[in-house]
C-alpha cells in the first residue's frame, strides 16, 4: 500500500488560509490503513482546524467527506457535490489521489494534507515499513522476496557491503540488513545458488529516472 502521514497542522493552516469554505476529503483505502487520511483522520483534523481557526478568530466552514478511493474517477464522483460547494479541497489522499482530483475538478484548488512517503507494508499495528521503490523491473525472485533496491541503504545487488553488525545495517542500526535477510531466506529456500549469478547494474530507465511512467492495458480499452 501507499504509506503517508498527515502534514503538521501549522502547515495545513497556511495551505487553507485563503479559503473560507473548505472540504476535507478523505480516502478510504491506503491512507486510511496508515492512519493519515481515512474517515477518522478527516474528523480529527476537521475538529482540530475548527478549534484552531476559532481560537485565531478566523471564520471558516469545514465540510467532511470520505470516498472509497481518491485515485479512481468512479469513486471521486461521489464527492462531486461536496467538492463543488466549497472554495477549496484539502485532500487527505496520497499524491496520486490529489492529482486525480485536480484533473477532474480543474477550477477548484485541490490542496495536499498528507505527505506521501513510500510503498510499504504494515509490519505490526502502527508500524509501517518501506518495501518497494516501484522500479518497474522486479527482481524479487532471485533475492528471496526481499528487495535490496529498497531495503539496502546502498542499493547493493551482488551481496552485502560487509558492514552489518548483528544483522543490522551499518547505515542505520535500527534497520535490518537487507542482505542478511536475503541470505537467511535463500538458505531456507535452498536457493543460495542464486547469489552465484552476477546481477548487472540496474537499468533505471524502467524507474522514475526515465520520467513519469504509463501503463497501458490495451485489452481493457474500448
Amino acid at each position: 500500500m501507499i504509506v503517508g502521514e498527515q502534514k503538521p497542522i501549522s502547515e495545513i493552516k497556511e495551505i487553507i488560509a485563503p479559503y473560507k469554505k473548505i472540504l476535507i476529503l478523505g480516502c478510504g483505502t491506503c491512507v486510511k490503513t496508515c492512519f493519515a487520511g481515512g474517515e477518522d483522520e478527516v474528523a480529527v483534523l476537521a475538529s482540530a482546524l475548527r478549534l484552531a481557526c476559532k481560537k485565531d478568530g478566523k471564520e471558516i466552514e469545514i465540510e467532511e467527506f470520505t470516498v472509497e478511493r481518491q485515485c479512481e474517477d468512479e469513486f471521486i464522483r461521489e464527492g462531486a457535490p461536496a467538492i463543488s460547494r466549497n472554495e477549496g479541497v484539502l485532500s487527505l489522499a496520497c499524491g496520486a489521489g490529489v492529482q486525480a482530483l485536480a484533473r477532474r475538478f480543474v477550477k477548484i484548488p485541490i490542496l495536499p494534507g498528507v505527505n506521501t512517503t513510500f510503498i510499504g507494508v504494515l509490519e505490526k499495528q502502527g508500524v509501517f515499513t518501506e518495501e518497494c521503490s516501484g522500479c518497474g523491473d522486479c527482481m524479487l525472485a532471485i533475492f528471496g522476496g526481499i528487495c535490496p533496491f529498497t531495503r539496502c541503504a546502498k542499493k547493493l545487488l551482488n551481496g552485502p557491503c560487509g558492514g552489518s553488525q548483528n544483522g543490522k545495517c551499518e547505515v542505520n542500526p535500527e534497520t535490518d540488513c537487507a542482505w542478511q535477510l536475503i541470505i537467511e531466506r535463500l538458505k531456507i529456500l535452498g536457493q543460495m545458488d542464486n547469489l552465484r549469478a552476477y546481477v548487472p547494474p540496474k537499468n533505471w530507465q524502467t524507474g522514475l529516472s526515465g520520467g513519469p511512467r504509463k501503463l497501458v492495458r490495451e485489452d481493457h480499452i474500448i
Partner: peptide, 8 residues
C-alpha cells in the same frame, strides 16, 4: 500534542 499545536 494536537492541543499544543493549535494553541489550546
Amino acid at each position: 500534542n494536537l492541543l499544543d499545536e493549535i494553541g489550546l
